[in-house]
Design a protein around this nucleic acid. Sequence first.
DNA 1: AAACTAACATACAGCCTTGTTTGTATGTTG
DNA 2: CAACATACAAACAAGGCTGTATGTTAGTTT
Lengths: 207, 207
Amino acid sequence: MRRTKAEAEETRQQILLAAEKVFYEKGVAHASMADVARAAGVTRGAIYWHFANRADLVLELYNSLPMPQEELIARELEAENADVFAVLERVGREWLELLATDEHRQRILSILLRCDTSGEFAAISERQNDINDEHMQALEAAFAKAQGQGKLCACWTPRSAASMLRWVIKGLCSEWLLFGRRFDIAIEGKEALRRLFRTYASHVPSL
Amino acid sequence: MRRTKAEAEETRQQILLAAEKVFYEKGVAHASMADVARAAGVTRGAIYWHFANRADLVLELYNSLPMPQEELIARELEAENADVFAVLERVGREWLELLATDEHRQRILSILLRCDTSGEFAAISERQNDINDEHMQALEAAFAKAQGQGKLCACWTPRSAASMLRWVIKGLCSEWLLFGRRFDIAIEGKEALRRLFRTYASHVPSL
DNA sequence: AAACTAACATACAGCCTTGTTTGTATGTTG
DNA sequence: CAACATACAAACAAGGCTGTATGTTAGTTT
């Protein structure tokens, strides 16, 4: 039963939604394509028409997440007298708020966190790694700029500051997502960021 | 071919070692019992004799990890004039060093991190959660003690300090384990702990 | 030394999955 | 309005995996 292009796109979205639900509940590894198909109200044929295989389906799930405007942030940080800490803290806060309010993002990130990165999903894992590397470079550059402005406390290096920020956010998010979301990530995260950036700026003797 | 008890225990250990290797390389979900058996030089029969199923095997892998002496630490912290920060920092450092030097621990923790916590492995996940909760309680109590001694900077609460410590360590470990161990966790972790505990102690105005 | 049992190996049944292929009805295009 | 391509459904083939049941050998007990 040939459908119009719009209808086809609709079923594609349905499949993605169903995959999100099923993979989140049963785990990527233990959910079959038939499970997804049932949840989407189609047959496996439809899934294999729109997606090459399960790995591709997960990848598209990942791609369906709108990513924060990195170029915009980069431009903000490039400004001559940019307040690096203020920008970074705000971006971090926005990211946490985005995660806190977008349930799709929560589920998809949970799926990716729990999904076995070896084997068929290696590609996804590698892409995340690449993105991570870029982020770290950008972060380190930003902190270096702050250091040049004399704003970074002497006990931090750009690298150590960037690493610490990344570790805290990563720990925070994984704890929240995998641990039943037993605290308010927006609030606690905001406080943690506040404290962290305060220590970046405070004037404590170097190590 | 009936073996003596000692020999049986030996094959049990062989199976555990093989499981560690295979699960680490292929991921728990995609490795079959036959894979493990082959790697151990036995048949699946031997595995099913020693372990109930795959989940049990993973659980025993987890149990094979010697855990740090929590009671000993607790007693140290209970001392009237205990230097809480010094103890906590040392314990954190020791934990990172233990992880850095013990490859079995690295592989097993990697397996657990990447293993799908829903479904058959829910039990393991719950146990980790319980342990986590205990740790958090102990940490919070320790920081509360430090606060009582007037050593905790006013901008921290016992809870926020404990959370931050946990997030940093968790972020640090997952980054290192899942990310190809591309930095020296003992050194960088030591530095991060140093900076973190310095901020706990430093006298910065409250939030 | 006979009876028993621990420690496996081997064989079996059956399910579930994946990927593909075929069929088909319906849009879409010239 | 053909001819073709699209968007699926349905059927198929093949294999892998799990759990168990059974077989077998060698310690162990009495």
